[in-house]
Write a protein that binds this DNA or RNA. Sequence first.
DNA 1: CAGCCTCGAGTTCT
DNA 2: CTCGAGGCTG
Length: 703
Amino acid sequence: MSERLSEISRHMQELRDAIELHNIRYYELDTPTIPDADFDKLFRELEELEQRHPQLITPDSPTQRVGIPPLKAFPRVAHRTPMLSLSNAFTEGEVEAFDRRVRQSLGIDHAEYAVEPKFDGLAISLCYENGTLVSGATRGDGYIGEDVTLNLKTIRSIPLGLKVADGGAGVPAFLEVRGEVLMLKADFERLNRQQREKNEKTFINPRNAAAGSLRQLDPRITANRNLRFFAYGIGACEGGNVPQDTHSHLLDYLSSLRFPVMRERRTVTGVAGLLEYHHEISGLREQLPYDIDGTVYKVNQLEYQEKLGFVSRAPRFALAHKFPAQEATTELLGIDVQVGRTGALTPVARLKPVFVGGATVTNATLHNEDEIRRKDVMIGDRVTVRRAGDVIPEVVAVQKESRPSDAKPFVMPRHCPVCGSRTVRLPGETLTRCTGGLFCPAQRKQAILHFASRRAMNIHGLGDKLVDHLVDNAIIRTPADLYKLGLAALAALDRMGEKSAGNIINEIEKSKDTILARFIYSLGIRNVGEATARDLARHFGGLDRLMEADVETLQQVSDVGPVVAQSIAGFFGERHNREVVEQLRAVGIRWKEDAGIQTADHAAGSAHLEAGAASSKIAGRIFVLTGTLPTMSREEAREKIEAMGGKVAGSVSKKTDYVVAGSDSGSKYDKALELGVALLDEAELMRLLQASQADDSSTQADS
DNA sequence: CAGCCTCGAGTTCT
DNA sequence: CTCGAGGCTG
């Protein structure tokens, strides 16, 4: 045995030496002597041996060099001035609104704009000190980017040093140039051809190719990718003869420093000028050598720009006018029917895979029967597909003129495709439902998944594959059964190691400590979501009081009307449900109960409001979160706001007090502008939170 | 009773 | 994110 081991050890040393040799040849001498595939084979063999004999791994093994995620390989750098995103407009109406706001704020009749195409590439920032390029970084989240200086230096159109025409006196002490790195369409095609020949993965579009190329750890690879750079603005600057009057002069200046500046830029006046330019560029789109996704408008006078300032994370003086979402046509291969947690049958279009808006789309929801009828969709049709809101695929329309003669209409099944129970569509409802209830495996699985979901009992690692397996093999039937699972039973499943089985058992155990609101939500009572579950928990304070409440008592809770009350009473009226709840309690799920506030719900609510509102700008106020915040998730922000007694709503209305906007915020941001709701960014929110926390503790200390 | 505001539910892809 | 529908308010 030990002799065999020493033999293996020797072989591993040979592999290590060979790999290192090829590594050096490849990276330093640039003359690889064996094909990449053979190299990979050696590497994999070593990896396998190391996996089997971990005690034989040496610290100098080439396998130890890799495995560091490339993301971490680039140092993070803070931008001197944040790289903000632009507000988007999709319609002419939105562009008109933008121009109106600009004119009103400035008190002028006609605004002049610097306009240019919007490149579909990566925003970067280049820093020059005394005329020398010292660093370059990606946009990142706008505040912190990745330092990719070495890679940027390989881009030939980026000047490494600045030569000022006036003889050198005018070189700025510091200059930050902003622009876009991109790959030309032709270079993208060529690169993909090469990648295919080398049997390496191809890129989806020029933007991804540019991003991938810029983030190579080996600058030599970047150098071979033929990336381009175009400047479009200036961040921070000190000294030099940098123009102070207009944006277009700034671009002329950058051009004089030999930065590539796009040829299609121009200045126009008023909405008419903006729209005409947009139209013109749309027409040119196909012929341009690079991808663009719209046009950018900036108020030309720098003085005006300053006056307009910023809202949240976007300048008020600029707008990105985007082209409409790209559409594509494909074939509708069939319509499947999915069964949801509440038994709702949802028709889903199976499409011949088609590339739209940056992703390959194969499925698209058709929502319900009425939707299918409205769009007159038949199986076998050619359909137009687009990604709505840039994410969710949607069937836009049917090309009726090319409908094949054998196209079949969709018929909502009379029986559930999963359990065979009858399906019903109640009069006045749009949804068709399976009547199988928890007898239906689809509904049972969804119920368990809902129970375990993050916002309910938060059992990490219990995904749909595992639930499928557990339910199909009759290992569990109800959420309560989860808590009776043994380690042995779980580890015995295929593809489930001892370790991951242990992790899940652990997570299940952890979930036993919870709060009443989560528990109520986790039961999956129809029409009772997170918000209602919280209201119920607050009102009743204990589970027994909730379970015993009749329809009338339930309706005393705010936001609970006859329909919701009936759902709740109906749920607890079923013996099966009461049994599951009993089992869950018996198995050790626990939460704190209190007396609740069964009378005068609204009075208690307003007392709460008064207590906070006296000193706080948060308690009782309604917040809406949108976009990606720089340092925390929306979820974290919500918790912080709620901890201070604030309320977080899902949509913006007149009642909204604050909209907290991050980057890439969407329609909610626009709505906030429209309604004149106060906009905050993350930093402002944090300040607000801290201020009211200070108030809170001082008032508490006083009393 | 109408219209507005919220909440619930369902969904896709990387 | 979007749609539908429940609940509240004027």
